[in-house]
Design a binder for these strands. Sequence first.
DNA 1: ATTATTTTTTAGATTACCCTAAATATTTAT
DNA 2: ATAAATATTTAGGGTAATCTAAAAAATAAT
Lengths: 218, 218
Amino acid sequence: MLSFVEENYLKAIYHLSKGGKNSVSTNALAETMNNKAASVTDMIKKLSAKDVIAYEKYKGVNISPKGKTEALNVIRKHRLWETFLVEKLGFSWDEVHEVAEQLEHIKSPLLIEKLDAFLDHPSVDPHGHPIPDKHGKIQETKQVPLSTCLLNKKYKVQSVKDGSPAFLQYLDKLGIYIKASILIKERIDFDNSLELIIDNKNKVFISQVAAENLLVTE
Amino acid sequence: MLSFVEENYLKAIYHLSKGGKNSVSTNALAETMNNKAASVTDMIKKLSAKDVIAYEKYKGVNISPKGKTEALNVIRKHRLWETFLVEKLGFSWDEVHEVAEQLEHIKSPLLIEKLDAFLDHPSVDPHGHPIPDKHGKIQETKQVPLSTCLLNKKYKVQSVKDGSPAFLQYLDKLGIYIKASILIKERIDFDNSLELIIDNKNKVFISQVAAENLLVTE
DNA sequence: ATTATTTTTTAGATTACCCTAAATATTTAT
DNA sequence: ATAAATATTTAGGGTAATCTAAAAAATAAT
């Protein structure tokens, strides 16, 4: 059984390794966990002893199959709770992360089964991120940053890369939301900002940074 | 800010002191917390330093006004979550305690506000226990154990004293639930068991112990 | 190919919560 | 009112998760 803290480390390793593709350095982990490298080394040893990561001194860590399953389950819980908070309790999408960080550690498989059913088995959370099913399977869709898209072509907002409240509130102000339609009217050479048409009617300008964090499909 | 463990101690003190009326001994606390008395003494000092209890060596502890407020808030959260689990997720009343023990420690006043509204501001939980309002106010109703009631008089089940799964499942089997109507047909002298009529139709027998744990009003 | 820099690990402490064993205070029984 | 029994506290330790400072390894730079 993993502790709250261990679950959080594992989740960070999963994300930093892009789902297990890369290995993760001690410093990178220390950075995202807001801990010192020495503390991370200690924790790495514990996680390694529990067989959720593979670790070789000075070589970084790799998540194991068992660790991936655990991480995906925590992510599943996080995203189901976020969906609950928005869909059922009326939270806005920029308010849910902190609370879901706590709720994701509740241990009760039955609770998650029932929550999932109550929400009608959602496939994505309020930020457009896919919700792993109970076996850890994720339904991926090939999304690209809006910053790489063509002019005068209609795209659909699928998810946000950065889920920070500041960014989400900014999107709210612009009238941009998950599933919104976007067309790039013009790319401003000066700063790579974009002029957009949202839902075929509203004209807004968006910075390059913002466009890089908005993922769309055709 | 209280830790999970501190909140659990405080809750136990609140219950053992019958809402702050009595003082609580180290041993009693050790018993309900499943800890050793020495550990309790340590924790008592911490809680005392945080001004949630008053403590004098060898004299037991008394919950303070601040401690009472904290305890009631945890109890409020516990009971709201139990209500959610039963009303919205379809848990049965004997399955919710363990999960609510975890959920009650989630820190987010906004969450509880919204959960309360989502549940339509319930006044009692699935076991008939009153839910304190956000100011810690409890709406008490004067209930008596069925074991002390008169023959051939109609009573209404208000709550269970013992919320153990075993007792709750037993009540399910007997067809007894919160708000059910009960009439005592006969008291068996041999073992003080009772012959009951539930909802004016079903005849069942109930042991004295069970009758002591069933609280009713006229 | 050394030296300098960066990264990672080790050593030794700290806090929260729990333990056992021993000491001390309180209560009960004679 | 003193001895016996019970309750409580103190002393000293252990584990989880963190830290700082110092040592060691890996990487980068000349």
